[in-house]
Amino acid sequence: MLKKTVLVLFAVLMGGVLADAHEEEFKLINHLRYYKTMYDAHEADELMRIPYGLKPENVGGEDQDSKKECQGVPMAFRPTENSDEVWILDSINRGLKLFKSGKLLKHIKIKQEMGFISDFAFNKKGKIALLNQNVGNVYIINDNGNLIKNISGFQCANSLEFVSENTLLIDSPLSHGKVKLSIDGDLLGVYESDQTLSVYSSEKGVWGLDCYGGQVAKLFVRPNNGKTIKVIVEFPYKDYEDVEYKGGNIYGFDKDGNIYFGLVACNPEGIIYRDRIYKCNQNGEVLKEIDVLSKPFMSPNLPRHRVACPDGRVLTFHSFEDNYYLYTYSMK
C-alpha cells in the first residue's frame, strides 16, 4: 500500500515537471511535433489539387479508404521543363497524366499487362521508363504508351532516373546498390551502396547524402569511374547535445545544375528540430537554405516525396479528403 502511494505521488510530481519542461518547447503542427526552432518555418504553397476518382481528369480511383492514407495515392510525380506542369503517375487508373492548374493536358494510358507501376521517368527524347517493383520489370515505352522494351530483374527496386538519354540508374536493393542500365537492356554496372547514394547523377558523378545518425551530415559525390566518394560539403548541427540527423534526401537539379536536398534532425523523442531544404551549386557552395514545415504522409512505398523543379522550387504532395494536392516550397 505504501509502495503504491509513493508511486502515485511520484507520478503526480513527474507530470508536473514534464508539463513545465515541454509545454513551450514543442507543439503539434500538421500532426508533427516541432521544436520551437521550427515555429517560423515555411509552409508549402498550393500549386494545384486534383480530385480523386476514376475519370481521366481524376487520380487515385475510388476503391480506397476514405482518408486515402497511402493506398491509392498516386505513386510518383514530376515537373516538366515548365515547372507549373506536373506529370502524375496514376497507377490505380493506369495512366501517366499531365496536369496544369488542376486541368488535364495529356494522358498516356499504361497497358494493363504492365501491372501496377511504381515509378516513371522521362528522357529528353520522348521515351519513358516505367518500373513495376512487384514483378521487377522496367518497361520502356514511347509517348503513345506503346511498348519498346521490357527488361526484367529489378524486383523490389525503389526508383529509377534517367542519367542520360539512353541510360537509367535504378535503386535496386536486391542488387545491393544502384544499377546502371541502358534502355536496350544492357547492364552497364552496379554502384554498390546503401540508402545514402541517390539515383541523381551529373557530370561529376552520382550524388549522395550521409545523414543517418550523428551530428554531421555530408553531401558527397561518387565519380562515375571512381572507386571512392568525394565529400563536397559538410553540415554540422551540434546546437543540441541529443539532437541528431535522422535522414535526408536529394531532390534533383534545377535548370542551372544546382542541386537540391533536405536534411531532418530530431531528438530521441522524435521531435523535429530541423527540416531544412538546401540549394547548392555543384562545388558545394550553399546558395539558399530554408526550414520547412512538412506535409506529412505515411507512404513508404513512394519513390520520392519531394522533387526539385527546373525553376528552383521544390515540389511535394499531400493527400486530404477528396483531393490529391501538389505543393511547392519556394527557394527564392
Partner: peptide
C-alpha cells in the same frame, strides 16, 4: 563506418541469367 561503405569496386559488367528482353520487333 561511412568510409567502409563507400569504397567501391569497379562497376564492371554484371550478367543476370534471368534477364529477358522482348523487343518491339519480336513481340
Amino acid at each position: 563506418t561511412s568510409e567502409e561503405k563507400f569504397v567501391a569496386e569497379d562497376p564492371g559488367e554484371i550478367e543476370i541469367e534471368t534477364a529477358k528482353v522482348i523487343t518491339g520487333e519480336n513481340k
